[in-house]
Structures are given as structure tokens and as C-alpha cells.
């Protein structure tokens, strides 16, 4: 995505390198990626996943597409920095990153869970229609773009720190939670789903396509468990908890599910 924001360029290795989620048993197999080309890297990962369900990737250096189409029951634990399109088209698997992630985490993801113990780049959750993404720190621009819900599927993204501009653009469904600040052009073209913000949006960031309100009990039923999960995953490494603050959140919802209903004439 190169040109989209400077935020994604600052994808330095920072933050805790220890895993605290403790959800996965010790991975049964390790694959070291080093300087491997993504094609070879992904082939090796797939072969390892054919043998065992849990695979740890070591020395990951920005290889793209890790966890692509990963099915249910399979887990990747990534040490290093995975490249763009992490967990793209993921279909029920689990990916945990002990470091930062780059652009388009969970691109067109169907189901499963991504946990990033660090920050991520632009367009996280692009066109996601199911599953959950937990980012411990911040994210770049255009996160949650065109997320969509369908039947019982409700995609969820939780971002622990600041998010860039154009968050929730064209959002058509799902839940996006931001615990830090958000940028300009928030929720442009949003016509479904909900965005929960710990801090009020920047002045002028919202258009009249959306409605800003305080969370109510129905929201809390959705939000509180997500914050509790964020705490479970990250509180130990962050040294603070967020779930007690659920009731202070703001809610952004679309004014209409038919934003362009009266735009055209014949």
C-alpha cells in the first residue's frame, strides 16, 4: 500500500516479545523463514500444517500471506514481522504475532482469530466478514474498510491504541473498537455495523452519514466481553486493564443502510 500513510512505514520491531495469551499449547513444529521468498515460505508453512496443527514461525521477515486461507483447527505463532495480507481469506484458523504486523491484516477474512502483540499497518480487516482481530497497539489508515456482517457472522476488530484516518470507510457490518484516538474522515460511507470509541472523534471527523452516541446496555453486552478479552490477551504485557471503562465509550453507527438510495434518477 506504500503511499497510504506514513504510519505503516514505521513498522519497527517494538513492544513486548513475550506471549501472554497462553491459549495455545506449545507448537508442535517450528519453521524458520529467514530470507525465504514468500512463495517458498508459505509452501513450507503449508507442509508443516499438513503434518501438525500448531506451527511456530521463527525469524519471520515480512513474508506476505502467512496464514492465507488457514482453516479451523490450525494455528500459527509468528516470531518476527509478518508481511502484508497476514491471514488473508483466513477460514477459521488462529494466528498470533509476537511483534508488529504490516498492511491488510485479515484481508477478506472469513473466520478465525488474529492476535498481534504490537501494532499493524493500513487497511486492517479489509472486507472481513467473520472472525476476530485483536491488535494490542495502534493501526494505520483505512482500518475496517468494507467490513461486512452476514447471517450470524460478525467480524470484530479491536485496536488498543491510535487508529489512522478513514477508519471504517464503507463499513457494512461488524464491530470495530478503538481504545486510542482516531483520525479524520471517520466512518465515511459507513452503512452497517458499529464502531466503539474510547475517546470522542476528532472535531469534524464525522459526516452526517453517521450518528454519534454514548453506549447503552445493548452496546455493553457486545463491548464488555471484547474489552475483557483484550485484557486477557494483553493486560500482563501492558501493565493496565481497560475493561472497567466500557461504559464510557462512544458509539458510531450509520444513519442509513441505504446511503445512496436517493442519489440516482432515471
Amino acid at each position: 500500500m506504500g503511499t497510504v500513510s506514513a504510519a505503516s512505514a514505521a513498522n519497527k520491531q517494538e513492544g513486548a516479545q513475550s506471549c501472554s495469551s497462553g491459549f495455545a499449547p506449545a507448537p508442535a513444529e517450528r519453521v524458520t523463514l529467514g530470507a525465504l521468498h514468500f512463495k517458498e515460505a508459505n509452501e513450507q508453512v503449508r507442509q508443516a500444517l499438513d503434518r501438525v496443527d500448531d506451527v511456530a514461525l521463527e525469524d519471520v521477515r515480512a513474508q506476505r500471506y502467512l496464514g492465507c486461507a488457514l482453516p479451523a483447527g490450525k494455528r500459527l505463532r509468528i516470531h518476527g514481522t509478518p508481511g502484508n495480507d497476514l491471514a488473508c481469506f483466513m477460514d477459521g484458523g488462529t494466528v498470533e504475532v509476537l511483534g508488529n504486523a504490516q498492511d491488510q491484516v485479515g484481508n477478506t477474512m472469513n473466520a478465525g482469530e488474529v492476535i498481534v502483540h504490537g501494532r499493524c499497518g493500513d487497511a486492517a480487516g479489509y472486507a472481513m466478514r467473520g472472525g476476530r482481530v485483536f491488535i494490542r497497539d495502534g493501526c494505520g489508515w483505512r482500518a475496517g474498510i468494507h467490513m461486512k456482517a452476514y447471517d450470524a457472522r460478525q467480524p470484530v476488530v479491536v485496536v488498543g491504541k491510535d487508529a489512522g484516518s478513514f477508519l471504517g470507510e464503507y463499513m457494512a457490518g461488524g464491530v470495530f473498537v478503538v481504545l486510542g484516538e482516531t483520525g479524520d474522515y471517520l466512518a465515511r460511507g459507513m452503512h452497517g455495523g458499529v464502531i466503539y470509541l474510547k475517546n470522542p472523534p476528532r472535531a469534524g471527523a464525522l459526516s452526517d452519514e453517521v450518528v454519534l452516541s454514548r453506549v447503552d446496555d445493548a452496546d455493553l453486552a457486545v463491548l464488555a466481553p471484547l474489552l475483557a478479552e483484550y485484557d486477557r490477551l494483553f493486560a500482563a504485557e501492558l501493565g493496565y486493564r481497560v475493561s472497567a471503562e466500557a461504559s464510557e465509550f462512544f458509539r458510531v453507527t450509520p444513519a442509513s443502510s441505504r446511503p445512496y438510495a436517493s442519489m440516482y434518477v432515471r
Binding site: 506504500g2 503511499t3 498492511d103 474498510i145 461486512k148 452476514y150 443502510s257 438510495a261
Partner: peptide
């Protein structure tokens, strides 16, 4: 795989494609 009755909006660009390099990225994904 979208909600019933809501407008189905295809944005003008693919938001993961801003260049030929990005197209390559989608092709290979």
C-alpha cells in the same frame, strides 16, 4: 455474504491496490 436490504457498495478502487506493485500483491494472494 452481506446483509439483506442494505446497499451493496463496491468502492471505486480496491483499497489494497494503489499501484502495480499492489496489484501484484493481490494477484499473489
Amino acid at each position: 455474504m452481506i446483509p439483506e436490504g442494505a446497499d451493496a457498495i463496491s468502492p471505486a478502487p480496491h483499497h489494497d491496490i494503489y499501484s502495480i506493485e499492489d496489484l501484484r500483491q493481490l494477484v499473489f494472494s
